Simulated assay, not measured.
Amino acid sequence: MPLDFSPSREPLSTFSLAGMTDIVLLLLIFFLLTSNFIPQMGIRVTLPQVESSAPVERDYVTVVLTDEGTYYVNGQRVSESRLVASIRSAKTTQSALVLRADQGATIGQFATVASAAQALNLRVLMATERNRR
């Protein structure tokens, strides 16, 4: 008696897209999440808005100035009296200091950071946000 190897059922003529949509959804979530990973400091400040901004060098010392008058050097909170020493210890080969100052910060606080940078022979760059229109 010969064996019958013919399929008893008809082949599937439809293709399920459920697996494909799951993969597309996961890829979409991955790209949305990773596109928001822009290197920014964890200290919240409202940067001044300007019409255009220049790109910033990668090799710099970052000083954050909050609206309460608190200073942060590379993410570490420092007092005003220790500002120059903290910038000096953070500086290795950098030639620039990026100041991320809140809009509510005073010009006197900015002058304190600028004089500390001048004492250490650093250029001062002001971080801003581009005006969105």
Score class of each variant (00 low, 15 high):
A18W: 04
S16E: 09
Y72R: 00
A117G: 04
Q118M: 05
G42A: 02
I107R: 08
L83C: 05
Y72F: 00
F110A: 05
A111F: 00
R9L: 07
V61F: 00
Q109Y: 01
D4S: 14
S95I: 13
V56L: 14
A111E: 11
T62I: 09
D67P: 02
G75L: 15
D59H: 08
E68K: 15
V61M: 07
S6T: 00
S53R: 08
I107S: 13
G75E: 12
F30P: 04
D22F: 02
I87W: 06
V24R: 06
R132K: 13
V56I: 02
A116M: 00
P39E: 15
R132I: 14
L25H: 10
L65G: 04
A105V: 14
V124S: 03
A114R: 03
L12N: 00
D59K: 11
R58S: 14
R82G: 15
L26V: 10
N74F: 04
F30N: 00
P7R: 05
Q94Y: 07
L99P: 06
A101V: 06
T62A: 13
V45E: 06
N36D: 06
G108T: 09
S81P: 12
D4I: 09
R133A: 12
V56P: 13
V78Q: 13
G19Y: 14
Q49E: 15
I87N: 10
A18T: 05
Q76S: 05
S8N: 11
S86R: 11
L65W: 01
N121S: 08
A96M: 06
S86E: 14
S13N: 08
F31W: 09
S89H: 05
S86A: 15
R58F: 13
F5H: 03
L32R: 06
N36F: 13
N131W: 01
G69L: 07
R77C: 08
A96V: 07
A96C: 10
E10R: 09
F31H: 01
E129C: 03
L125C: 09
N121Y: 01
L28D: 03
R44E: 11
N131C: 04
V50K: 13
F37Q: 05
G19R: 15
S95R: 12
S52F: 01
R88C: 02
L125S: 14
S53L: 01
G19F: 10
E10N: 09
Q40I: 15
V98F: 02
M20H: 04
P2F: 14
N131Q: 08
L33H: 03
T62V: 10
F31I: 03
L99Q: 01
L12D: 03
L122Q: 11
V124E: 02
A114F: 01
L83Q: 12
